[in-house]
Design a protein around this nucleic acid. Structure first.
Lengths: 240, 240
DNA sequence: ATCGAAGGGCCGACGAGCAAACCTTTACTC
DNA sequence: GAGTAAAGGTTTGCTCGTCGGCCCTTCGAT
């Protein structure tokens, strides 16, 4: 038997953790809000429409919306012209749990895979339109070096935008999940403007490689980009 | 708004698909069996132990085992020294559903991400022991060029072995999931010995790059390796 | 012959989720 | 100002998956 046999045995028989529809909905909408995919002040679809789109009963959706409303991420107004809106401003983020911190390396590993795959496929497939949108995001980021929260929001839009350029919905989902997991880790470490500037240089190189349809260069630039975060985390967290 | 806004909106509000514990268990064990992670004739842990490890009730586990037994993947014997065993031989694989076929490109995209990430991280982290195990698998594959089913089983062990070399359980899980999804697509296309020989050459180069701790070369070799499959599928399936 | 470890079967309790109503608030329209 | 449409809020009852426990059957080892 190969030396890894124990590990794969462990993996096969690891706990099955079935999320409930309620939990999954809270997480989906909550992450989208925290990542800025749903902008502050934006209006969600009406409950009756949203539950149909999500494929769940309205009562289940309302449980999720109630939870998000109690945590302050969403607020609802009644009557005609009312609806459910993303809170503005958003409530402050909560510090990451011990469990999240303990698994930080695996989280980074998963992100590495998603980002690398996205970089390669975006380089193969991105349409000129998409590349232009990415260019604009990079320019926008340049003006946000002094304001980390705003920078991070636009950063997420850039990474998700790369995933969208692959036109592979599952990769978009994987990217939002990965970014959601990373945000918990990233939020509480310092990001001086110089670091953000160099990070955005890397963005520029990634987008340039995508424009040139150069998958190898895109992957290389992305690897470098991710190493920055990882090195900082390795210095701050256990198991580094 | 970026051109991708529609896509990310679609993604955020896409149906939440809550698997039941029963379904998840059938899929986990079923995939492990089909992939050969649980070898034919192997004995599963006792029900009472297994349900504890999976974190589910015994009655739920038994539903899953009953399903797997009815589909012929597993057989159970009672009494002391009895237990639940992986069937030998396994039942013939079923042809892929129309849904699986329609999403083949996204499946390949996800696999690309996982395999690429695994290749890079394995090159950074693999221990000499693990590399040696991979070498042995490549050698074993060399003797199986004439027997596709056996080749494919060992092929999976090699790819999962690479994932194990990263020592990242989530990547191992991601790899087994990806291989499970690919198997459905691969099983029904022709694989003449010459194709397998060239595929195994690529394996050799991947492992060599991992041994040399050369992440870039590992990623390159892996990309090339995956393109083979993808090109064949693109020729046979719609949307290619 | 007995014991113990294994699968096999059964049943009651509980909670998630669903479906379909109905109520309340609010704003636009005529 | 009355009516109506569109939104969130509430209630109710049912189904079904899951749990947890209990007892039965089988059969090798002692």
């Amino acid at each position: 038997m190969s030396p890894g046999a124990v590990l794969s045995g462990e993996t096969v028989f690891a706990p099955v953790r079935s999320q409930t529809a309620f939990e999954e909905t809270v997480e989906r909408l909550g992450t989208a809000i925290k990542l800025g995919l749903l902008a502050p002040g934006a209006r969600l679809p009406a409950e009756r429409e949203l539950c149909a789109r999500l494929g769940i009963a309205r009562s289940t959706l309302r449980q999720a919306l109630t939870a998000l409303s109690q945590s302050g991420h969403v607020r609802a107004t009644r009557g005609r012209g009312g609806g459910t809106f993303v809170a503005d401003p958003l409530p402050p983020a909560e510090p990451p749990s011990a469990e999240v911190l303990a698994l930080w390396r695996e989280t980074c590993d998963e992100r590495l895979a998603v980002e690398l795959g996205v970089a390669v496929l975006a380089a193969e497939r991105a349409e000129p339109d998409a590349v232009q949108a990415l260019d604009e995001l990079v320019a926008e980021l340049e003006d946000l070096l002094e304001d980390f929260p705003a920078y991070r929001q636009a950063d997420i839009r850039l990474h998700v935008g790369l995933a969208e350029a692959t036109r592979s919905p599952r990769l978009v989902r994987a990217m939002t999940d990965a970014q959601g997991a990373m945000t918990d880790l990233i939020a509480y470490i310092a990001h001086p403007p110089e670091v953000l500037a160099s990070s955005n240089d890397q963005h520029r190189r990634i987008v340039a490689a995508v424009r040139d349809r150069d998958a190898v260069r895109a992957a290389g630039a992305m690897t470098e980009h991710l190493q920055g975060t990882e090195r900082v985390l390795a210095g701050l967290l256990p198991g580094g």
